[in-house]
């Protein structure tokens, strides 16, 4: 009713990159969208024709993570693990990290990476951008 059109209650898209699912969260995420995402990811892992080995959730566009969203993220990772996929949370903003620690929500079961490239590297996939030139390759 009072929500502006800037908020989106729509489902969050889940992209497949080979055997990795990539989810990009942006701005305001409604509680129902977060719960829907939790279901969508586990459904995709369980029913994908190709095996899913990893899940990367990019939260670099997220202003705040409260205990509700934190719980959803932890549950997505726990569910994915039971379905044989590893989850990496990518791109958390420093202010969000500071706030989560003070809130008492340190998400011990979640693997993290500073950005999506590093998350993909952590999952054993080549990063989207070429890595810095190695010394041996100069000559």
């Amino acid at each position: 009713m009072t929500a502006s059109s800037a908020t989106h209650a729509n489902a969050v898209p889940v992209l497949a990159l080979g055997d990795i699912l990539l989810i990009t969260l942006q701005g305001e995420l409604h509680d129902t969208s977060a719960e829907q995402l939790q279901y969508d990811i586990s459904h995709r892992i369980a029913h994908s024709p190709l095996p899913v080995n990893g899940v990367v959730i990019d939260i670099s566009g997220v202003d705040i993570v409260d205990s509700f969203l934190g719980r959803i993220l932890a549950e997505i990772a726990a569910t994915a693990r039971l379905l044989a996929a590893q989850t990496v949370l990518a791109g958390m903003r420093p202010a969000v990290a500071i706030t989560l620690v003070e809130l008492g929500l340190t998400l011990p079961g979640l693997d993290t990476a500073l950005n999506v490239d590093r998350a993909l590297a952590l999952l054993g996939r080549a990063p989207a951008a070429p890595p810095p030139t190695r010394p041996e390759e100069g000559a």
């Binding site: 009072t2 209650a9 409604h30 705040i64």
Partner: peptide, 18 residues
């Protein structure tokens, strides 16, 4: 005064407070 009656309202309240 901002109403809190749905999760869309939660998002709106967060935005207004920010």
């Amino acid at each position: 005064h901002l109403p809190i009656g749905s999760d869309a309202d939660l998002a709106w309240v967060r935005q207004q407070v920010r």
